[in-house]
Design a protein around this nucleic acid. Sequence first.
DNA 1: CTAAACCTTGACGTCAGTGTCAAGGTCAAG
DNA 2: CTTGACCTTGACACTGACGTCAAGGTTTAG
Lengths: 133, 133
Amino acid sequence: MKIGELATRTGVSARAIRHYEKAGLLSAGRLLNGYRDFGDEAVAEVKHVVRMIRLGFSLEEIATFPACMFTGGAAVLCPVALQAHRDKLAEIELLIAELEERRDRLLATLKAAAQQSAEAARAASRTQEATGP
Amino acid sequence: MKIGELATRTGVSARAIRHYEKAGLLSAGRLLNGYRDFGDEAVAEVKHVVRMIRLGFSLEEIATFPACMFTGGAAVLCPVALQAHRDKLAEIELLIAELEERRDRLLATLKAAAQQSAEAARAASRTQEATGP
DNA sequence: CTAAACCTTGACGTCAGTGTCAAGGTCAAG
DNA sequence: CTTGACCTTGACACTGACGTCAAGGTTTAG
């Protein structure tokens, strides 16, 4: 099939598919007129690439995975891919931890601000008492 | 003080300080020779900018904060800044949720792979039984 | 024949925060 | 006067996954 059909069948833009091919994630034959010619398996491959991207892998990382990732139909993970997944998991957990730290700092800032504004309100009410009834 | 001193006193590169100034986060006078001339308060301002960046704000976001962020010495938050902090908090929590989803998908993938390899091992052992003793 | 739809490669734009080089002005010490 | 340290502006480099435009060849339906 040509790139347009692959694009519609996978929901990925033709531009992205060319990008994947240039990155070595996809292989395509060529028709006599130079058009890319993909086999049916390309649909699964593209979907697999999309899954990997959603898992947080970069194209470069995906490119380092050996052929075993595709020969197995995307369900079986060879040791290399397995380790890559574990590494990525650790990386994501680190990211989560960093974001949680950031969140906590923000919460602390907001809490301190709330306390300050409460004190300001008390001070204001005291002032009002003094000048009021 | 000139930019070099401000850089060493804040631990921020002179390049970054010029960038902050161009972004409108810092204001500096000029000496007769064209050199930037910062006041002592610039040290606190730069450190404040760094804190904001670490909280996840972009320079553009920081630039939208009104002067109240600096006049109070960085402890008092005006309503606008307060809302910005709340927005950023929500944004970060969304990011965390996305990462957790990604992590869970990764865990699921790894779990499935472990199960598959266990089954493969069982199948292998059965094969060995059949051909073995 | 022609317009529409599809394909090709190449290359710049995006977002953010700098690093880094270029080419030059300024200033203090020797 | 010279060297070296410090300052100036301007502009390109980098990361990543594409979007998008350019300029053109191919195919198909009418």
